[in-house]
């Protein structure tokens, strides 16, 4: 028996609905149909009246969740694709994100964003939005890379009192598997050393964890031991774990699937450069997608996003610098 990343997301929602009567799910096609990716399969039947199809209105979906949260509910809303959350952007960054600071009333909503590129998905079904949401104060931004984290972090997202942008990667939905759901969980906000090493540190998150781990494996044959850190939550960013790793390795590469201008990779490098400059034996490096919309054609897409071989190539440069 194994469980996929997507099944873990479904199972976490099932548990949240079952454990807490304040939880409900609202979003496009999430009801009887079970969601575009089936992340809410059978939940509408299991929890009548609590897993509801919404109109095609991202602004109103998020706004509605905020109002429900003010009244003590724990809404989980699904954006069909992360890309469409731009239509609900105003509610997320101006209403949800400011509510606690302005009024002292917390806003416990979870906005699930099916994120990242998949084969043939093109410019409007592939985006990684974590950087833009992290920029706004008042939001927690989770980017789980493993089945275990998809499950436990989604449960934590529902439990905490603040708005959580839950970036779940579509590429991991079906093929990433674990033996079982976890019984215990590392709390959000703490990074995890996914692979220990001594020669260089790769800091990454979400689907890029797996490309980075594969690259690290590739470099073993060349005699390098690469440490790979999974940030898990990009906001807050666990700078301490990264600093401690860089103190051991002296070299840093930050890998993200999002666009290069600003963003999570730039933030990590900025913090290590300002707080850990003396720890670095070489200039830090970063690897992102190219600065164009995400292309449709598989060959273009494969070259647009960082892959294991691109990470390995960048690491070779970093190691010989």
């Amino acid at each position: 028996m194994s469980v996929t990343y997507l099944e873990a997301i479904r199972a976490a929602q099932e548990k949240a609905l079952s454990d807490d009567p304040r939880v409900f799910i609202y979003g496009q096609d999430v009801g009887v149909f079970g969601g575009a990716f089936k992340a809410t399969k059978n939940l509408a039947a299991e929890f009548p009246g609590r897993v509801m199809d919404s109109p095609l209105s991202e602004d109103a979906i998020v706004g509605m969740a905020i109002g429900a949260a003010i009244e003590g509910a724990r809404p989980i809303v699904e954006m069909q694709f992360a890309d469409f959350s731009t239509v609900g952007f105003n509610q997320i960054v101006n209403q949800a994100a400011t509510l606690y600071y302005r009024t002292d009333v917390p806003c416990p909503i979870v906005v699930r964003l099916p994120s990242g590129g998949t084969l043939g998905a093109g410019p409007f079904h592939s985006q990684s939005m974590e950087a833009i949401y992290s920029h706004y104060p008042g939001l927690v931004v989770m980017t789980p890379a493993t089945v275990e984290d998809a499950y436990s972090m989604l449960l934590e997202a529902v439990a905490i009192d603040d708005p959580v942008i839950f970036c779940e990667h579509k590429l991991l939905y079906y093929h990433l598997k674990a033996d079982k759901l976890p019984d215990t969980a590392q709390p959000a906000g703490k990074a995890r050393i996914a692979r220990a090493g001594r020669d260089a540190t790769v800091v990454t998150y979400s689907a890029m964890l797996h490309e980075s781990l594969q690259a690290a494996e590739e470099l073993v044959e060349e005699g390098w031991q690469i440490e790979v850190i999974d940030l898990r939550t990009v906001k807050p960013l666990d700078t301490d774990t990264v600093l401690a790793s860089v103190a051991r390795t002296g070299r840093l590469l930050v890998v993200g699937e999002a666009w290069p201008w600003g963003g999570v990779t730039a933030e990590v490098i900025s913090r290590i450069a300002t707080e850990g400059f003396g720890l670095l034996d070489a200039a830090p490096m970063r690897l992102n997608a190219k600065d164009t919309p995400v292309p449709y054609h598989p060959d273009l897409w494969a070259a647009h996003r960082p892959t294991a071989s691109a990470v390995a190539a960048r690491l070779r440069k970093l190691l010989t610098q």
Binding site: G72, N90, N94
Partner: peptide, 20 residues
């Protein structure tokens, strides 16, 4: 908030939660 119309779905959501 200053963004006009934005409070309409929020009030709707408050009512939705009350009904739940």
């Amino acid at each position: 908030i200053s963004h006009l119309g934005a409070l309409i779905p929020v009030v709707a959501g408050g009512l939705y939660a009350r009904r739940l």
